[in-house]
C-alpha cells in the first residue's frame, strides 16, 4: 500500500472517530462501541476504495455500502458528513425529533445511506439483492456489506450466504465486524461462532481474516478480493469494540453507553491528543 495513501486514510479515521464521539456527545448516549469498531473500514471505503460522488448520492453506477448492523449508523453519518454528503452540523441532531440522522440507517432520510437497516440480518439480503440487481443492469460497481458478529446469530444471514454463493455473486464484499461482543455480553458465551472465516469458506466464499482496525490490512484485503472472480467475498475483521478510545475499549458493557458531557470531553481529549501525535510524526 502506498505510504502516503495509508497516512491519508489513517488521518481520515482519526477525523471520523472524533466526529463520531462528538455526535454521541450531543445526545449523551448511543451505540458507541460498535460504531467505533468499524471506523477504519469506513475510512478505507469512503477515503479510497469506493467509486462515489457525494454531490450525486443517487448515481446508479456508484459503489454501495450497506451497514446491516444499522445501529452503527452514527459512524457512517460522521463519515458521510466529512465527505460532504451533508453539513457537519447535522451530526449534533442525531436521534433528535425531526432529524435526518436516526439511530439506525435510513436511506429515505440520509443522503449517502444506501439501504435502510436496523432489524439485524436484513441488510445482508438487501445488499445481495443490490449486488445481483446492479450486475443484471450491467453496472460495473461493487456492493460492500457490513454485518456484526452477533448479527451472525440471525438465520437470515446464512440464507443470504447460501444464495450469494449459489449465484457466484462476486461483486459483493461482505465484512464481518468481529468485535467479540453482542448486547448481552461476549459472543463466545452467548452464541459461540467458532472460526467465522472457515464458516464463510464452507459456504463457498473467498474468505479472509485480518486485523480489522488496521488500515493497511483492510486495504490489502479489498485488493486481494478484487483479484478473485466467481465467488462472493468475506472479510472477517478482527476488531476491538470501542476501538480508538482506550477508556471505551476497556468498558466491558460498551454496546451502548450513557455518559455525561465531561466524560465525552475526556474521550475527545484523548482522541485529539492521539491525533496531534499522529500528525506530528
Amino acid at each position: 500500500m502506498d505510504a502516503q495513501l495509508k497516512r491519508e486514510l489513517q488521518d481520515f479515521a482519526f477525523r471520523i472517530r472524533i466526529a463520531c464521539v462528538e455526535e454521541f456527545k450531543a445526545l449523551g448516549f448511543g451505540h458507541i462501541g460498535g460504531s467505533l469498531s468499524i471506523v477504519d473500514t469506513l475510512a478505507v471505503l469512503y477515503g479510497s476504495t469506493m467509486k462515489i460522488d457525494p454531490k450525486n448520492p443517487g448515481w446508479p453506477e456508484r459503489d454501495k455500502f450497506v451497514c446491516s448492523k444499522g445501529h452503527a449508523g452514527p459512524a457512517v453519518y460522521a463519515t458521510l458528513a466529512l465527505k460532504g454528503y451533508f453539513p457537519m452540523d447535522w451530526l449534533t441532531t442525531l436521534n433528535k425529533g425531526g432529524t435526518n440522522l436516526p439511530s439506525h440507517c435510513d436511506k429515505s432520510k440520509t443522503p449517502g445511506i444506501d439501504a435502510t437497516t436496523g432489524s439485524l440480518g436484513q441488510g445482508a439480503s438487501q445488499a445481495l439483492g443490490l449486488a445481483i440487481g446492479d450486475a443484471l443492469k450491467g453496472r460495473k460497481n461493487r456492493v460492500f456489506l457490513m454485518t456484526g458478529d452477533g448479527e451472525l446469530n440471525e438465520g437470515q444471514i446464512w440464507e443470504t450466504a447460501m444464495l450469494a454463493s449459489a449465484r457466484k455473486v462476486d461483486n459483493l464484499i461482505w465484512f464481518v465486524d468481529n468485535n467479540k461482543k453482542q448486547l448481552d455480553g461476549l459472543v463466545d458465551e452467548i452464541m459461540p461462532l467458532g472460526d467465522i472465516g472457515a464458516k464463510f469458506s464452507a459456504f463457498g466464499f473467498h474468505a479472509q481474516t485480518i486485523p480489522g482496525n488496521d488500515i493497511e490490512a483492510i486495504y490489502e484485503a479489498i485488493e486481494a478480493a478484487s483479484n478473485v472472480a466467481g465467488k462472493p467475498h468475506a472479510i472477517i475483521l478482527d476488531t476491538v469494540k470501542g476501538s480508538g478510545v482506550k477508556a471505551i475499549e476497556e468498558t466491558f458493557d460498551n454496546h451502548s453507553i450513557t455518559a455525561k458531557a465531561e466524560v465525552y470531553d475526556g474521550w475527545l481529549e484523548a482522541l485529539n491528543s492521539d491525533y496531534a501525535a499522529f500528525k506530528a510524526l
Partner: peptide
C-alpha cells in the same frame, strides 16, 4: 435464471433480496 431467481427454501432472504433488487431499480 436472470429473470426468475430461485432463492431456495429461504423466504426471509427472498423478500430482502427483492427489496435490494428494488433498490437497484427493479
Amino acid at each position: 435464471p436472470d429473470r426468475a431467481i430461485n432463492c431456495g427454501i429461504a423466504e426471509a432472504n427472498m423478500v430482502g433480496v427483492a427489496a435490494g433488487l428494488a433498490l437497484a431499480g427493479f
